[in-house]
Write a protein that binds this DNA or RNA. Structure first.
Lengths: 334, 334
DNA sequence: TTGTATGCGTTATCAC
DNA sequence: GTGATAACGCATACAA
């Protein structure tokens, strides 16, 4: 076998020749177009099969003007939250024959615009998941990114379809829950500064904590290790309850507390955000705010799909997350 | 804005016209080819910039004969193990300008051949991660899948590069560990029947348990819920230690034990496989076998990349996993 | 119904 | 150095 040989791909012409018809007819047969004579069709089918012919996706893409590929850009492929969104999109898109090209910006906001454009150029559309870029930047970029839909982010003045989550409502539910349990001092393990959802959670936290409990904010991050590292710092503030930026952070804190012998929820309550699959199986089971992750992906696809078909996309949607009370929170003991 | 308007994309001709040069020259400038007159080059650059020109990836793909896209097929995008492999590939490929198209077979072995071919057709190469198909099927398919590399699976007679893990060694380490702790009855929560790695673990388990402890095998699965559901069944067999097919299953079992008040590792030891990030942060921290997940992805890319360049790929590699003793295992108390 | 011819946007092989 | 021009593989008006 010659290692240097290039794909000796069989083309539509080879099939045409073998079936003794024109390339156009082969094309028609392959695309089940119009009425092709049954006899010819069969000849083409056989020729194609025996030659092992498969239309070139690239050539089809060029000729049709669409690749049936869409891109998704996420800040961190390692985060189960984004993985679920990806699954949702991938599954929904797959049903319509579209495949997903995924790009990870590795929580580097500055790279985002470049990556978004780059990946968008290779496909028919783009899903921007929790972009960390500033509103202004997104507004300027919008033209070169279209068609695209925004997940987990609202940008005023942007005409792209959006699929969002009412994080404020989730935070308020969390605050009410903790206050109801008698907590008077709560620590928030803050997420990435570039994260708009972190900002939103922070703002809502400040607003709704007012008059209910003292709030201490600690810079943390978005990953396991960040929560693990910040857990005892949080405890050191005298807080009786800790709110993680997301479940990963909360789970990291849970791990640390177990490691240093601090009992949850007896000595300290811990809550997260997102309700990733692991939250339910943690010990203790994590109280958190459930975000419909796969649904976010599906809804995003519905909108992108509509735009790709030239139709009007469904109206923007904003999911209201649901408080999921489990075992990591309890009435304060002091 | 006319909703029906198609991408009014600016082409290489538009730039050529604006810069008063031939399309060929524009192409040369865009690709930093040969020596183009500095003055002309600048004119082209300006024209391209002011027109917002970007080469069509599809057209380039057709003309160059490569898309700079590779596919990866995984059995379950929801599994952190595969996510890590994906990350590894995505990151390594990204450095060389390649993007990754991901397809999830949703643990449906019968769909795999079709999906593999389908996704392969859209890119320059394929990474088959833990394929569930039979050896025979893979051998027959190989021709239509090339170039591709195999991760987490060895198939005799297949000339595709492979990146594997010595699961048997991992299992033996696990067995030695548990036996050393005095366990005389161990239960194995078996993974998907179609999983070759499950079969390998099972075989090695049977072989190395011989004379050390009694082994009970329970059908389970590959996900959290499966482990959660099977945990008490496993305990009911009288086993003092439980080996999960993977970390997900083990973590699920851990969750169940916590829920029903069974203390780990005092009443029962639990071990997993893979060492996903959550294993370290579980309570108790999960003893498991560490598989270098991202490295698997990176190595896979190195091989695929070499083949794409027409070079000889590095030799097949087989990682030896490392036993990670943590807190979910202890000396048997009876 | 079927074939012919042209276009899709680039790259690359030639002459100039 | 630079510019025509022919692929690349397929889809699709249009003609027959």
């Amino acid at each position: 076998m010659d290692p240097g040989e290039r794909t000796p791909s069989v083309t539509i012409r080879d099939v045409a020749r073998a079936a003794q018809v024109s390339p156009a007819t082969v094309s028609r047969v392959m695309n089940r177009r119009s009425t092709v004579d049954v006899e010819l069709a069969r000849r083409v089918q056989q020729a194609a099969a025996s030659l092992g012919y498969h239309p070139s996706a690239v050539a089809q893409g060029l000729a049709r003007g669409r690749t049936e590929l869409v891109s998704i850009l996420v800040p961190d492929l390692g985060n189960p939250m984004f993985q679920s969104v990806l699954r949702g999109i991938s599954r929904a898109a797959g049903v319509e024959g579209y495949r997903v090209l995924v790009t990870d910006s590795h929580e580097m906001p500055l790279e985002e615009p470049f990556l978004a454009q780059e990946t968008r150029l290779r496909t028919d559309g783009l899903v921007l998941c929790s972009p960390r870029s500033h509103d202004q930047e997104l507004l300027e970029l919008a033209g070169k990114l279209e068609p695209f839909v925004l997940v987990n982010r609202h940008v005023e003045g942007l005409l792209a379809p959006m699929v969002a989550v009412d994080y404020a409502a989730g935070i308020r539910a969390l605050v009410a829950h903790l206050a109801g349990l008698g907590h008077r001092h709560v620590a928030y393990l803050s997420g990435p500064m570039a994260s708009v959802s972190n900002q939103e959670r922070l703002d809502t936290l400040h607003a709704s904590a007012e008059g209910r409990f003292e709030l201490t904010v600690l810079e943390c991050g978005s990953m396991h290790e960040d929560g693990y590292e910040a857990a005892d710092r949080a405890l050191g503030t005298g807080a009786t309850a800790i709110i993680g930026y997301n479940d990963l952070v909360a789970l990291g804190a849970l791990g640390k507390f177990h490691a240093i012998g601090v009992s949850v929820p007896d000595e300290v309550s811990v809550v997260g955000f997102d309700d990733i699959a692991f939250a339910r199986y943690a010990s203790p089971m994590l109280t958190t705010v459930a975000v419909p992750q796969e649904a976010l992906g599906e809804e995003a696809w519905q909108r992108l799909s509509a735009v790709l078909r030239g139709e009007e996309p469904p109206a923007d949607v904003c999911f209201t997350p649901r408080l999921e009370v489990r075992q990591s929170t309890a009435r304060v003991s002091r």
